[in-house]
C-alpha cells in the first residue's frame, strides 16, 4: 500500500497549475482532496509522474450565491457543503447528499470538484449535478469553457476534461417555488458506496401539476444516469395521478449497463434502484406539496 514515486507540485495560482499541466501532459494528475486519488495511488490502480495539488489555490474554494445560481468552487469541501445554511435552502439535494459521502473524516478533505471530476458512477454529487443540469466551469491553456453536466460524464472515472484542463467551479440552479428534494440510497453500511440510489427534485405548479422534475441515479450504470423517461412521464401530469411505483419502474426502463458485482446482480440493483426512485419521489413530492 505504498504509491509509486511521483514529483509534487503545489502551485498557488490557477495560472501556475495550468502551466504545470501543459508542461507534463498526461504524466500529470490534478490532486484535489485526495480521498479517491491517494488510495488509488496507494493500490497502484493509478500511476502518475507528477501530482499538481490544487489545495493551495484559495480562489478555488467557496460558495457564492448570485440570483438563481449557486456557484461552488471546485475545492469546496463536502463538510463545507454539509454545513452551509445557504445551500440547505437553495440546493437542498447537495446538502442532503453530502452526509452520505463516506465518513466525516473523508468529508473534511474531499471536495465537490474532486468528486465530480473523479466521476465515480456510485458517487452522490455527480448524480445531483446531472439531475439539476449543473454547469461545470473549466480552464485549460486553450481558455475557459462551460460544460453542461449531461455532456461531462463519459464512463467510469472518465469525463470530458482534457488532461491539461481543470474543473474550477460547478454552478447549480436554485429551484424556487413549490419544490421538494430527496436523496435515497441503499448502502450495506453508512458511508459505504451505495448499491443503488436516486436523487429527485420536483416542482409543482399552482394546480398541483408537475412543472419540472429532475431524477439522477447512482450505482446503476458506468456513469451517473439521468432518468429522462421517468421525468418526461411525470412532467405536466397532476401529481395525485402519478403512481410512485411506476416512476421507479420508468426510471429503470432505459438503463443500458447496470453493473453486477459481489454486492448484487444487475437484476437486484434494478429492483433496489426502482425502490429508491419511488421513495425519493414520494418524499420530494410530499415536501413540494406541504412546503
Amino acid at each position: 500500500m505504498k504509491a509509486s514515486r511521483f514529483a509534487y507540485h503545489a502551485p498557488s495560482t490557477l495560472a501556475e497549475a495550468l502551466a504545470l499541466l501543459a508542461e507534463h501532459g498526461d504524466s500529470a494528475k490534478v490532486l484535489a482532496g485526495g480521498q479517491s486519488l491517494i488510495p488509488m495511488l496507494a493500490m497502484r490502480l493509478a500511476v502518475f509522474d507528477h501530482l499538481v495539488d490544487l489545495g493551495r489555490i484559495p480562489e478555488l474554494a467557496g460558495i457564492d450565491h448570485q440570483g438563481d445560481t449557486v456557484r461552488i468552487g471546485a475545492a469546496t469541501t463536502h463538510t463545507a457543503v454539509e454545513s452551509s445554511v445557504d445551500l440547505a435552502r437553495t440546493v437542498p439535494l447537495l446538502a442532503r447528499a453530502a452526509p452520505l459521502i463516506g465518513h466525516f473524516q473523508i468529508r473534511n478533505r474531499g471536495t465537490v470538484g474532486g468528486a465530480i471530476a473523479h466521476a465515480d458512477p456510485a458517487a452522490e454529487f455527480p448524480a445531483v449535478a446531472l439531475a439539476l443540469d449543473a454547469q461545470l466551469e473549466t480552464v485549460s491553456p486553450r481558455g475557459a469553457r462551460t460544460i453542461p453536466a449531461e455532456k461531462f460524464f463519459l464512463g467510469t472515472w472518465s469525463t470530458a476534461l482534457a488532461d491539461d484542463e481543470i474543473l474550477t467551479a460547478v454552478n447549480f440552479p436554485a429551484w424556487r417555488g413549490r419544490t421538494g428534494h430527496a436523496v435515497e440510497e441503499l448502502a450495506r453500511r453508512h458511508g459505504d458506496f451505495a448499491i443503488a440510489g436516486a436523487v429527485v427534485a420536483v416542482e409543482l405548479d399552482g394546480d398541483d401539476r408537475v412543472r419540472r422534475c429532475g431524477i439522477g441515479l447512482l450505482g446503476l450504470g458506468s456513469t451517473p444516469e439521468r432518468a429522462t423517461a421517468a421525468e418526461q412521464a411525470v412532467t405536466g401530469t397532476a401529481a395525485g395521478e402519478i403512481d410512485p411505483v411506476e416512476v421507479g419502474r420508468a426510471a429503470m426502463s432505459t438503463l443500458q449497463s447496470v453493473p453486477a458485482d459481489l454486492h448484487g446482480s444487475a437484476d437486484y440493483r434494478r429492483r433496489v434502484g426502482a425502490a429508491m426512485v419511488t421513495r425519493a419521489w414520494q418524499r420530494a413530492l410530499r415536501e413540494a406539496h406541504d412546503g
Binding site: M1, K2, G34, Q35, I38, P39, A42, M43, T79, H103, F104, Q105, I106, N108, R109
Partner: peptide, 22 residues
C-alpha cells in the same frame, strides 16, 4: 492504508482526517 479503517485518524488544523489519505 487506503482510507477504510480509520486507525490513522489525526487532527489536521483541527479537522479529523485519515493520515493515510494525506
Amino acid at each position: 492504508e487506503h482510507g477504510v479503517c480509520g486507525a490513522c485518524t489525526v487532527l489536521l488544523d483541527g479537522a479529523a482526517v485519515r493520515a493515510c489519505l494525506v
